[in-house]
Simulated assay, not measured.
Amino acid sequence: MFQQTMKKLMAVLMVAGLVGGLAGCNTVAGAGKDIQRGGEVVEETSHDVQHGAM
Results as ranks from 00 to 15, higher is better:
16 A>V: 15
31 A>Q: 13
33 K>Y: 02
33 K>R: 15
19 V>G: 10
35 I>W: 12
10 M>L: 12
37 R>T: 13
39 G>Q: 12
10 M>Q: 09
54 M>F: 01
4 Q>H: 03
9 L>M: 09
34 D>S: 14
40 E>F: 01
33 K>Q: 10
51 H>N: 08
39 G>V: 06
21 G>E: 01
27 T>M: 15
51 H>C: 00
38 G>M: 14
23 A>F: 12
33 K>E: 07
44 E>T: 06
33 K>W: 02
39 G>L: 12
53 A>L: 07
53 A>Q: 07
39 G>E: 09
46 S>F: 10
23 A>N: 10
13 L>I: 12
9 L>C: 01
38 G>R: 15
6 M>N: 01
20 G>V: 06
25 C>A: 15
12 V>N: 12
6 M>E: 05
50 Q>Y: 05
44 E>V: 04
15 V>G: 04
28 V>C: 06
49 V>E: 03
15 V>C: 05
36 Q>E: 14
12 V>E: 13
9 L>E: 03
37 R>S: 10
27 T>F: 14
47 H>C: 07
31 A>M: 13
18 L>P: 09
4 Q>F: 04
32 G>Y: 01
19 V>E: 03
37 R>W: 06
20 G>P: 07
33 K>I: 04
6 M>Q: 08
9 L>Y: 05
27 T>E: 12
6 M>S: 03
16 A>K: 13
41 V>M: 11
38 G>P: 01
49 V>I: 14
10 M>S: 04
50 Q>A: 13
19 V>L: 15
48 D>G: 06
12 V>Y: 04
26 N>C: 11
54 M>K: 09
22 L>C: 13
36 Q>L: 15
31 A>N: 10
39 G>I: 10
5 T>Q: 07
9 L>G: 00
14 M>W: 11
10 M>P: 00
29 A>E: 05
17 G>R: 09
50 Q>W: 02
21 G>S: 08
53 A>W: 00
26 N>Y: 15
42 V>M: 08
48 D>C: 07
26 N>P: 00
39 G>D: 05
20 G>Y: 02
4 Q>D: 07
29 A>Q: 11
37 R>N: 11
34 D>V: 12
22 L>V: 14
14 M>K: 15
36 Q>W: 07
45 T>F: 06
18 L>M: 15
54 M>G: 06
1 M>N: 01
13 L>G: 11
21 G>C: 09
29 A>D: 05
22 L>H: 08
27 T>D: 07
11 A>F: 10
19 V>D: 05
29 A>T: 08
7 K>F: 04
7 K>I: 04
15 V>I: 14
8 K>M: 10
10 M>D: 05
21 G>A: 07
17 G>M: 12
5 T>I: 14
